[in-house]
Design a protein around this nucleic acid. Structure first.
Lengths: 360, 360
DNA sequence: GATTCTCTGTTTAGTGGTTTCATAAAAAAT
DNA sequence: ATTTTTTATGAAACCACTAAACAGAGAATC
């Protein structure tokens, strides 16, 4: 394999006896260049296998046409869907996307923002890490006039546009549904963290209880990190109560899954003895037995809207347009884990469309 | 929020009454600069909140310190784990990673390679799309002397280093395990595509049958796209046979999951009536009931090794070092879906460590 | 016939950081 | 004291591309 020399617009210019600026304009389809010249340039460019140097262009005009996306992790179906939605729109208008993962690590998040700024991205779209409480790194981006939009995990500490789902409503819907299925003692798994989503879900839980005439019982609300193992422990704790719950609404699917495992190990029937609902509509929730009722977060929609708002901001650039907050309405995906009444939903079961592509 | 003016090394230079080159050297810790000057420069840089412009540097020295990763999709646990492994090593030596998704779309893959070349990445790590049969876009990278390493979905059509797992061995292990559990009629779900991984898995299946004294029965090998729905159909097809299988080894976890659903719907016991094994160790497999035996692909290891080989290539750069092919040994994760003999594995169940972080 | 446009291109001057080459001063060697 | 070496820095070129300002030829207008 021979290594070809790098070809620049100057090489093309030389071949055609014009200047580099003419070639540059021709390649950029500038109206000041005649069609004949454009064609000639394009032809030579192709012939020489010219590959534009985006770096030089970026340096010159101060826009890299690259945007940075920061997510806690890209392997969560929710985040990757959002990313995909953003990418689709970005690609359409010739922007490249660079995906960065913070792994919910504050330091890494700070470094990433810095790295993106150094790389001179044209803007940043981010979902804030779980442990982030200081937002100076994002402020730095704003100070440099780099557009910033937050989605899902956002903060009001920054004056930026945000796209979130209505966690309150999602939780409310789930708990209301449980109540309608005849549940009277509905437990809730939540997090001790100050993250707003959990506070909102808790609020939805409480309001739905009240609106459905169910008294709040403190011992039914269990705080944990909401991982699988936490869900197991929380459920075991609940099983020690004198009066058992007849439903659990977990603020995470993993927490619900842990509860499901423990319930089955103890020979409880789901949903007859205890109904179960989660939050997020993680892909695995349709594969559990019984399939898990959960709240879908409209990830694709969120991605598209996020991208739209972001690029709107990019184009209007200088103008300090007010930041907007968009709240999407989540959807309750009802599956067997909560269906205690006769009526089973007609086929095809809901949420089936969320099945992932196969692994190879 | 005030927009601060962009500060360059020239601003720092001016403040200190030195030249930009001195500042540049000081910032790069060049030994030819006195410690006093270095300290002064660093101090002013911090004071002015100087942010280096990587683009300018990249243009000048022809290395962007960015590497591109192309994966079919980032939301598959396997790929994102590999990416994570790569990222970890890359970050350590101050390289940024830009993750691109081809969505198994050939055109998008070609465009992506082009875009990465234009962005002047220092190298590319890729897993080839399912439908890619022409590799000219990758050849273009090689011609430009841009290091390229392939993992998992690779090709021998290119003279590059590859890191793959031994699909043959994975399949062999799975089928051997089924035989050891007393299965005599083991079915196999495979793909009609020409992708080597499936051919290898089929080969492993066949050899394991032979080595365990089980006769090959053509009607037990079912070809499909291996998605969930395909698995269901394949299983239904098997259930129509006069002589039912007592085990199914699917070349994908989703296929196995489809089979599990159909089996349960028809009141077959798993694994007593039919044992089930998949391939990939997708996160959901530990949440099914019963949990699914499957083959783990050592994604993290693969990522680390891929990164190591890649950066080795980056550093030795010019030298046209021979390309190597590394084949990792996959691991069989035994779970209840195949355990027909008394011995149930002691807690904690295997594969538990693969549980994903919770969704929020 | 002179003036003004249009059209198509050229000239020039960046963009921000790095690096080669040169140089002055200081230190070391003779 | 003189030469050589070392140290610390400056001046200018350069990376590849782009945009503003400028220019010349022919067409259109008065």
């Amino acid at each position: 394999m021979t290594i070809k020399p790098k070809v620049t617009i100057h090489d093309i210019a030389e071949k055609l006896n014009v200047t580099a600026s003419t070639v540059s304009r021709a390649l950029n389809d500038n109206p000041r260049i005649s069609d004949a010249t454009k064609k000639a340039v394009l032809k030579i460019a192709k012939q020489l296998n010219y590959q534009p140097n985006n770096i030089a262009a970026a340096l010159r005009n101060g826009r890299s046409h690259i945007i940075g996306i920061i997510v806690p992790t890209a392997d969560r179906a929710f985040f990757s869907s959002v990313v995909r939605g953003i990418e689709e729109i970005a690609n359409k208008i010739n922007y490249k996307v660079i995906i960065c993962q913070s792994y919910d690590n504050y330091d890494k998040e700070v470094q990433t923002v810095d790295a993106l700024l150094n790389a001179r991205v044209d803007g940043i779209i981010a979902s804030v890490g779980k442990n982030t409480e200081n937002f100076d790194h994002f402020k730095k981006a704003l100070e440099k006039n780099v557009p910033l939009v937050l989605f899902d995990r956002t903060t009001d500490a920054l004056e930026v546009s945000q796209i979130v789902i209505d966690d309150y409503l999602g939780a409310y819907k789930a708990v209301e549904h449980l109540a309608q299925q005849g549940c009277k003692r509905i437990a809730h798994f939540t997090s001790p963290k100050k993250v707003s989503v959990f506070k909102e879900r808790l609020r939805g839980y409480l309001d739905a209880l009240r609106d459905n005439g169910i008294a709040y019982d403190e011992e039914l609300v269990i705080k944990s990190n909401l991982q699988l193992e936490d869900g197991r422990e929380s459920m075991e704790q609940l099983l020690k109560l004198k009066q058992l719950p007849d439903a659990v609404f977990s603020a995470s699917d993993y927490g619900a899954m842990g509860a499901m495992q423990v319930l089955k190990e103890n020979n409880f029937r789901i949903p007859e003895d205890v109904a179960l609902a989660g939050f997020s509509n993680d892909p695995f929730t349709s594969f559990t037995d019984p399939p898990l009722t959960t709240v879908d977060q409209l990830s694709i929609t969120m991605g598209k809207i996020t991208a739209e708002i972001f690029f709107e901001q990019i184009s209007t650039h200088e103008k300090r347009n007010m930041s907007q907050k968009i709240i999407l309405k989540p959807e309750l995906i009802i599956r067997k884990s909560t269906l205690r009444l006769a009526a089973v939903p007609a086929a095809p079961p809901m949420g089936r469309d969320l099945v992932q592509e196969q692994e190879i």
